[in-house]
């Protein structure tokens, strides 16, 4: 029996050994190549992210000043600003949060704390998983039909309220899932201790479970809201305008006011041919990303605090 590879062991005698050609150097080389490829894949995404951020900073930095923040959109690129889109985004953010937070947290508490594993729970669970795959623009069509048309007497059509309701439905599944995960981290011994004292389920949840889960729930909610703040398509579909030169009054009537948001303004500027408007878009992107950064930093801060206290 001749074998090209040197013998590994002195008394290598069995005939069966010659049936195996381990060719280890070749396999090790493949291993090395494979490892390098996985690293390259991971880094490629991050490199693109880096290029994107740098490109936008370069394009947008020159236009970024206080007057850019405090001016209304304009036909002249040099004097155009993002006051109304920024205020619109903040309106949408707040109203969406006010609608989606109680609904999502309530639904999450129901699914995690009240329901048994019955057909209703399973229906809701399958449904939530399904909704995650529905394109956001479809939610826009839903909002257009239901909130803009049918609920027109309440929402006044293409208004902040319609937009916020649409986005609330969009992020509801995310908040529900986040709430359930946060509730699951609360040890069940805590609930049993509460029941043992004679508390009702709601008392146990309100007094013991919810406070402990709250930071986790808030983290999930903020991440969901940062998704909402970056959404463009559904709001275009429900008919947010691109040219708004007034601010909604801070009152219930403000909810019925027409609006625009940052991503829509950015889209409007990107789709114009002039470079000046493109740079405005880049500046708008910087503001949008800063807004997202603040929200995400808050979420991470809450998460860390949450983890430390446990």
């Amino acid at each position: 029996m001749t074998s090209k590879e040197p013998k590994l062991f002195a008394n290598e005698s069995s005939e069966s050994d010659s049936l195996f050609k381990a060719s280890l150097p070749f396999r090790y080389n493949l291993d090395k190549v494979f490892a390098i490829v996985t690293w390259a894949a991971t880094l490629s995404g991050l490199i693109v992210l880096g290029i994107l951020l740098i490109d936008i900073l370069i394009d947008g930095f020159s236009r970024l000043d206080w007057s850019f923040i405090t001016s209304y959109p304009s036909r002249r690129a040099a004097s155009a600003g993002i006051l109304s889109p920024l205020v619109g985004s903040i309106w949408i953010l707040v109203v969406t949060a006010l609608i989606a937070f109680p609904l999502g947290v309530g639904a999450g508490i129901y699914l995690e704390e009240y329901s048994n594993d019955n057909w209703f729970t399973r229906l809701v669970e399958i449904n939530i998983a399904n909704l995650a795959a529905v394109p956001s623009i479809i939610y826009g069509l839903l909002g257009l039909q239901v909130f803009v048309r049918w609920f027109q007497p309440i929402t006044n059509g293409r208004s902040i309220l319609s937009g916020a309701l649409t986005l609330a439905l969009l992020i509801l599944p995310i908040i529900i899932i986040g709430t359930r995960e946060a509730l699951r981290t609360v040890p069940s011994s805590l609930r049993q201790a509460g029941f043992a004292l004679g508390a009702t389920r709601w008392q146990v949840i309100r007094e013991h479970v919810f406070p402990l889960a709250l930071p986790g729930i808030l983290t999930g909610t903020i991440l969901a809201l940062s998704r909402a703040i970056g959404e463009t398509a559904p709001l275009i579909v429900i008919g947010a305008l691109t040219f708004i030169t007034f601010l909604p009054s801070i009152s219930p009537q403000g909810l019925q006011s027409p609006f625009t948001v940052l991503p829509i303004q950015i889209y409007d500027w990107v789709s114009r041919p002039q470079v000046e408007f493109h740079n405005n878009a880049a500046s708008g992107i910087i503001v949008l990303m800063l807004l997202l950064l603040v929200m995400n930093a808050t979420a991470i801060f809450l998460r860390n605090k949450f983890q430390k206290s446990r």
């Binding site: 992210l49 290029i51 994107l52 936008i56 463009t232 991503p263 950015i266 990107v270 949008l288 990303m289």
Partner: peptide, 16 residues
């Protein structure tokens, strides 16, 4: 990267 709004990716695709 996952949190970057798609309108930003659109800008990136068209202009860079």
């Amino acid at each position: 990267l996952a949190g970057v709004p798609t309108v930003v990716f659109g800008y990136f695709a068209l202009l860079l």
